[in-house]
């Protein structure tokens, strides 16, 4: 689904060019749940922008869904640490926003509005927000806003979901709740996920594959498969294999932070 080959990316900093990524290669298969972990400032967010076609690499090739990326990919949904919902729109209207932008929905938006609204209702139910469609974002808790944000990133049925620390601002309980929401949505709708996170337990619990990045300039220094049976239950977080995996990743990141 995603192929990044020998990507380097430099941008103009205050004191000359800064190398954000250097020789990064990642490959994510169709339907795979990939997580990217690494120390802060290692260029994980840059990676997201590269994959979605918002920026171009200085050198190297990016291809998504079998085609080289030259501009916005349009088949991706994105969600970030901040839910970024528009306060003047209701939850439903917020979730409809991508359909007002992306084709083929855009040109049919007026005609098929009822159908799209039903779709929103369906998604809201999947993430546990049924009945909240007519509320405004500021009437929802942080966890609920993040669920709505997830719906917005999924409404146009993207083949690819890009998540940039989506649960980082939530409390521990809400976060674990949302892990399960994401797990269930992914198993139900079967898209490819790239999850950028600082939370190693989150990565191990959710992902099929974990890519560890080095400090800047970012490179992938290790790729690990996670083989716990699916569907995974939160209890898996307390098994020995799980904690061992987290431990190994932790050491790996401690190492690159020192280097």
């Amino acid at each position: 689904m995603i192929e990044l080959k020998d990507i380097s990316l430099a941008y103009a900093g205050r004191t000359g060019p800064v190398l954000a990524l250097d020789g990064t290669s990642i490959s994510v298969g169709k339907g795979e749940f990939a997580a990217v972990v690494g120390p802060s400032g290692c260029g994980k967010s840059t990676l997201m922008k590269l994959v979605t076609g918002l920026i171009k690499p200085t050198s190297g090739n990016v291809s998504v869904d079998g085609a080289p990326v030259h501009g916005p990919v349009k088949i991706a949904g994105m969600a970030f640490q901040n839910a970024n919902l528009l306060p003047w729109r209701t939850v439903t209207e917020n979730i409809l926003l991508p359909l007002e932008i992306v084709e083929p929905y855009r040109s049919q938006f007026r005609a098929k509005k009822a159908e799209y609204r039903a779709r929103v209702e369906n998604l809201l139910e999947i993430v546990g927000l049924q009945g909240f469609g007519d509320r405004f974002p500021w009437e929802l808790s942080g966890g609920m806003q993040q669920r709505a944000s997830l719906c917005r990133s999924l409404i146009h049925e993207p083949k690819l979901l890009m998540l940039d620390e989506p649960f980082a601002a939530l409390d521990a309980f809400t976060r674990e709740e949302l892990w399960c929401v994401l797990r269930d949505v992914w198993q139900r709708l079967n898209f490819t996920v790239v999850l950028v996170t600082h939370d190693l337990r989150e990565a191990v619990f959710l992902a099929d594959t974990i890519h560890v990045m080095s400090a800047r300039p970012g490179r992938i220094i290790e790729t690990r498969k996670v083989n716990f049976a699916r569907p995974r239950d939160l209890d898996v977080c307390y098994e020995k294999d799980f904690t061992d995996t987290v431990q190994v990743l932790r050491h790996k990141i401690a190492e690159v932070r020192k280097a």
Binding site: T52, P72, K74, M78, N84, L86, P98
Partner: peptide
Amino acid sequence: EPELEDVLRALGASKLDVMRKVGIP
């Protein structure tokens, strides 16, 4: 919010789209 602009631009939104849907309101 730059992230919101990213979300829309990744969907192929033009500057005009971003302004109409987000900037002006």
